[in-house]
Amino acid sequence: MATINIQRDSKDPYYRYKMPKLLGKIEGKGNGIKTVIPNMADIARSLSRPPSYPTKFFGCELGAQVKNEAKNDRYIVNGAHDTEKLQSLLFTFIDKFVLCGACHNPETDLVLKDQTILRDCKACGQRMPVDMRHKLVTFIMKNPPPTFKRSSRKDKASRKQAGGSNSPEDELLAADSDDELTRRIVSEAADLPDASHYDNDDDWAVDDTSEAAIKARQEQLALDMGKLAVNGDGDDDADGGQSKYDEFGDFLTKDPSASMADIEAKAQELGVWGKHRALEVLIQALFDADVINQLKKFRPLLLKFGQTEKHQRSILGGLERLIGVNYPEVLLDNVPNIFITVYNLDLVDEAVFMKWAEKASRRYVDRETSRTLRDKAAPFIKWLQDAEEETDSEEEDDSE
């Protein structure tokens, strides 16, 4: 089967993203004439989208009825339609609902957030909205794919108040939600001082590159990494020992302004790229009291390191030390807000949070600090539990 580049404007014969060229087959006659697309499932698989999406898109653009027979692998558009016309419309669908709006890479997933469909790019980490005015949007909302992140934990308020975005950028939660606990978390977080409240000349400021500040950060990082070495699970130490993480930490503390590309290159050079423990080092070396904004800034890099449960636990471990040891006076009371940010950025899944909350651990901090962190996180954990119960109840109602 002939393949073509997914991106319409790409003429590069070595372009890595390919899809089958669309095939159209006209069947029937008179009022029953229709166009069958026999390879729509293969095309959709190349685009990581359900085949019903581009088929329905054709119907929206052509003003025609469509039929999706997934069991028979038949996707039909009523009427006789030219194959080249359908191919052109397919490229339009790709531009609007597949390609990243920032880097134009097709490695995207669709994510629903506050009644907006976003293209979540795995290549550059950007989240760009689709054209919400298009008729296909309604179909997608009603027919989310299996990978569609339609989590009531994040969207329960917006589902009750369809059409409006009610999540403040700083809290990433709906202040006017029916959920009393959610409102209380956001209300209390709004009264907390942010990083700008503190003197920019404090010793913890990461942009302080004086020799004394760098030395202090290196000493603290060495202590932190020593504790991680004692309490860690050891699976990263077999191929180079602790020194490679010390060296990675030295690089980060000496050059806090290094770009994400530079950090990735150094991690690969040292052999720690993809290692979950490197995330602990990165958070310890680069993050400070402005952790919420830093989580947003470094999200693409954190995700590229890895997204397994171990990587997610390491993110939480690094945050435990950052919050409970480095800046407890600044960050302890802001734990719910920090964790809400982590959750909404898809850095840590709900299941990992729930497992983390089950019991205190001495892996990253002392037992007392670990208990304190979990106590501070209790409102957020309860919010997750309540939302899960509500989701289960809604699903039972739907099935009935």
Results as ranks from 00 to 15, higher is better:
A285H: 02
I315N: 00
D333E: 09
Q161W: 02
N344L: 08
D255L: 13
T253H: 00
F91D: 15
A212K: 15
I263V: 12
Q115W: 02
K149W: 02
V137E: 02
A174I: 05
N72E: 09
R299T: 12
M354Y: 00
R184C: 06
L347R: 01
E320H: 02
V365N: 01
N326D: 11
S152C: 12
V348D: 00
D235P: 00
F148H: 07
L331M: 14
K296Y: 03
V330L: 09
V365M: 04
K96F: 04
N326M: 09
G226Y: 09
A205M: 07
V111P: 04
T209M: 10
F148G: 07
A267S: 10
A102Y: 09
Q312A: 11
L345W: 05
L47Y: 09
Y14R: 11
A157N: 03
P38I: 14
V206N: 08
E219Y: 15
G28Y: 06
T116R: 12
T3S: 06
V281Y: 03
G318Y: 00
N72Y: 08
V348S: 03
L302I: 15
N200E: 08
R217C: 07
G28K: 13
Q268P: 01
R184F: 07
E400L: 10
M1S: 11
I315M: 03
I4R: 08
A41F: 03
D397E: 14
H134K: 07
K142P: 01
D95L: 09
G271Y: 07
Y53R: 02
P300M: 05
Q65V: 13
A190N: 07
E389T: 15
E264N: 02
K227R: 14
K71L: 10
L270I: 09
K142N: 13
K355T: 12
M19Y: 01
E180S: 14
L62T: 03
E219C: 06
G28I: 13
S10P: 12
V348L: 04
W204K: 07
A190Y: 03
K21L: 13
R367T: 13
C103G: 10
K154Y: 06
L47R: 06
A162T: 08
Q268R: 14
A289D: 13
G271E: 08
D201L: 14
D207I: 06
P38A: 12
G249V: 05
I26T: 14
A267Y: 02
V98S: 05
R374E: 05
A123K: 04
S370I: 15
Q7K: 15
D398T: 11
Q65P: 12
K382A: 11
R49V: 15
E395R: 12
P145H: 09
A157Y: 04
L23A: 13
K382E: 13
R374H: 10
A351G: 04
A190P: 01
G240E: 03
E389N: 12
R217M: 10
G125D: 05
N337F: 06
I33W: 01
L110G: 10
Y245G: 04
G101L: 12
R8A: 10
Q284I: 05
G59L: 06
H311P: 00
